[in-house]
Design a protein around this nucleic acid. Structure first.
Ligand SMILES: [Zn+2]
Length: 379
DNA sequence: AATGCCGGGGA
DNA sequence: TCCCCGGCATT
């Protein structure tokens, strides 16, 4: 019953632990989610991650366990229309790339990237500890060699206390050798599939907010759109904390079929052209979105995200369907306090069945599998 | 129709 | 004890 044990092995008792877990370090939570991969956070400042639990901070060098990443993604999915891990990654990377050009590195939010583990099916056959870098990585080469060395000392809770002894066999500690900048850059932004960008493509910006999907041609316009319509803030650009960067993504639109692309990208809900502004709690009737691998590959988001990250999602059954609950903001820069974080909208009970879906019944807690009262998502 | 889960039952 | 499910309340 190790962290990365296959599904058919005996279940870990921590599966039935109630949420939220409150770890000292976000990496200390064992949870056998699959695929057995971890994610490295690269950011200059310590980030609060309320989506991972109260007072949980994510700092540069933290390895996000799959559960953590999933929860971060899940948190995002509360507000982002695309229920796809790829979306989060693309936003992460987009944010990083956008802000990397600025002088104020404090504005950088986070870039979560994949690190491979020796037990990962992706790198089976590779020597443990190696990062299985892909031969070609041109797309992100221009990115600044951001310091990706392990620096968990930014907070006192940076103890890499994986609880399970079996984790010793896996690179649970930040062992990936990200010492050199070139290797780090290679690893962080390596693009296994060289993307050939056609001349006839135009970069558009798509709002990822739930049931919005607005596409604009300028990033500033999109930021303003998100800030005013969704976040309910002032339109002042200079007072922005950059949160809106997490809610839109780039889009490569073929100019030749621009009209077709736009028509297919506009939200298909003519009744609600104006999405509800935060913090309106909406109960949407979104159809269950179960992302198939083919869809992810062909998703426009994939074009703006490193493809190796996308493949992590596509190559494994990592999708969890239909998450719709509307909760509070989840990623906040350290220091910035959000208003009205107080009350969770009571009543709505999302349990394992709904969160994971029938097709992922083995992810449910024991009680849910037995049709008993859920012990993971307690009321 | 979907979800949450109590009570009951079988191995 | 572990596990499953009929059925009902709730949405
Ligand atoms: Zn449960």
């Amino acid at each position: 019953a190790s962290f990365f044990s296959p599904l058919n092995s005996s279940r870990d008792s921590s599966l039935d632990a109630p949420l939220p877990w409150m770890p000292h370090c976000p990496i200390s939570i064992p949870f056998p989610l699959y695929p057995p991969t971890c994610f490295l956070v690269d950011c200059s400042s310590v980030l609060l991650a309320p989506g991972l639990g109260p007072d949980v901070k994510v700092a540069c060098g933290h390895l996000l366990a799959p559960l953590l990443l999933w929860r971060a993604w899940w948190s995002y999915s509360q507000r982002i229309s695309k229920l796809d891990l790829t979306a989060v990654f693309s936003v992460f990377c987009l944010s990083f790339r956008k802000l990397s050009g600025k002088a104020g590195i404090d504005e950088v939010m986070a870039a979560a990237v994949l690190t491979s583990l020796s037990t990962s099916p992706l790198v089976l056959g590779n020597p443990p500890g190696t990062l299985s870098p892909e031969p070609s990585c041109e797309a992100w080469k221009e990115g600044p060699a951001m310091s990706s060395s392990y620096s968990s000392s930014s907070n006192n809770s940076g103890d890499w206390n994986w609880d399970l002894p079996s984790d010793r066999s896996t690179p649970s500690t930040p062992s990936p050798p990200l010492s050199t900048d070139t290797e780090a850059t290679h690893f962080l932004f390596g693009d296994p599939i060289p993307r050939k960008r056609k001349n006839s493509t135009k970069v558009m910006f798509k709002c990822l907010w739930k049931s919005c999907g607005k596409v604009l041609s300028s990033s500033s316009g999109m930021q303003k759109h998100i800030r005013t319509v969704h976040l309910g803030r002032k339109a002042d650009l200079d007072q922005s904390d950059g949160e809106e960067d997490f809610y839109y993504t780039e889009l490569d639109v073929n100019v030749d079929s621009l009209t077709d692309g736009l028509s297919s990208l506009t939200p298909v809900s003519p009744t609600s052209s104006v999405p509800p502004a935060f913090p309106v709690v909406e109960v949407q009737r979104t159809p269950p979105v179960l992302v198939k691998p083919e869809d992810s590959v062909e998703s426009p988001l994939s074009h703006s995200a490193p493809t190796n990250l996308c493949h992590v999602h596509t190559d494994h059954a990592y999708q969890v369907g239909h998450v719709e609950k509307q909760v509070r903001p989840h990623w906040v820069r350290s220091g910035a306090c959000h208003p009205d974080l107080g009350s969770q909208p009571r009543g709505e009970a999302k349990k394992c069945r709904k969160v994971y879906g029938m097709e992922n019944r083995d992810m449910w807690c024991t009680a849910c599998r037995w049709k008993k009262a859920c012990q993971r998502f307690v009321d």
